[in-house]
Nucleic acid binder design. Structure first.
Lengths: 123, 123
DNA sequence: CCGTATCCGACGCGATACTG
DNA sequence: CAGTATCGCGTCGGATACGG
């Protein structure tokens, strides 16, 4: 692979594959949930309170999508009151490093981006 | 930093910083444009034809956002016909590695995800 | 050639109310 | 406790037409 051909991974199939994944990752809550579950197994209500601002609806929907994609496993305990526990699968855990890479980039570049926006504004 | 505390980068401020960046990255065309510009300076019409399916509108809008954030520089040549060239700034280039990390993850896990979806479907 | 303007449909997501 | 159902708003992005 020559110097300027690694981006073929991104350009790949016209970006379809990558964007399909990004769409799953890039919604409002997915990464927060995955990062929270990296601490270990949590039940629904624990997730709800550890992720400030999330609604029941979005927590449910996002968890269902993650389960559907095999990134999170869902275990229902037949008790009263009901207890449902969510755990990151190996695939889910493997998402953490690349997500961290992006997070690091984000935090590193926030000052530059905000400065650039301010400069752009002043025109 | 202990074993399970690196995700503080993601959970950080409640995900606000990371999501602000993800929102810029995760729209339909940004990464494709950045990856395409990694080859070098390109003019508007070249980008349009190297990125299949993009509309003039979205190419313009996405490039403006990237310029505003200081990831792409825009150079207008006062000629007839007009020539406008776009180049990745150093900050823009620095986005490529983490984006590739995510792309690699995506491609690696597509089979697993699709299998999981098929299994989930059959219930 | 390189845009901008306008309309319009689709979807993400929050608020709220209700169930097993 | 752990959801599901419904509504309504805001935003993204495609199609199309026009301008410097």
């Amino acid at each position: 692979m020559s110097e300027y051909e690694h981006t073929c991974l991104i350009r790949g199939d016209g970006g379809q594959t990558l964007r399909a994944i990004l769409d799953r990752i890039c919604n409002k809550w997915t990464l927060l949930i995955v990062a929270t579950l990296d601490r270990g197994t949590l039940r629904f209500s624990d997730l709800a309170q550890q992720i400030p601002g999330i609604s029941q609806r979005m927590l449910t929907l996002t968890l269902r999508n993650l389960e559907r994609d095999g990134l999170v496993s869902r275990e229902v305990h037949a008790e009263v009151p009901p207890r449902v526990e969510y755990t990151l699968t190996p695939a889910g855990k493997s998402l953490i490093p690349p997500a961290l890479a992006l997070a690091s980039w984000a935090i590193e570049h926030v000052p530059h981006i905000e400065a650039s926006r301010a400069a752009y504004q002043a025109r």
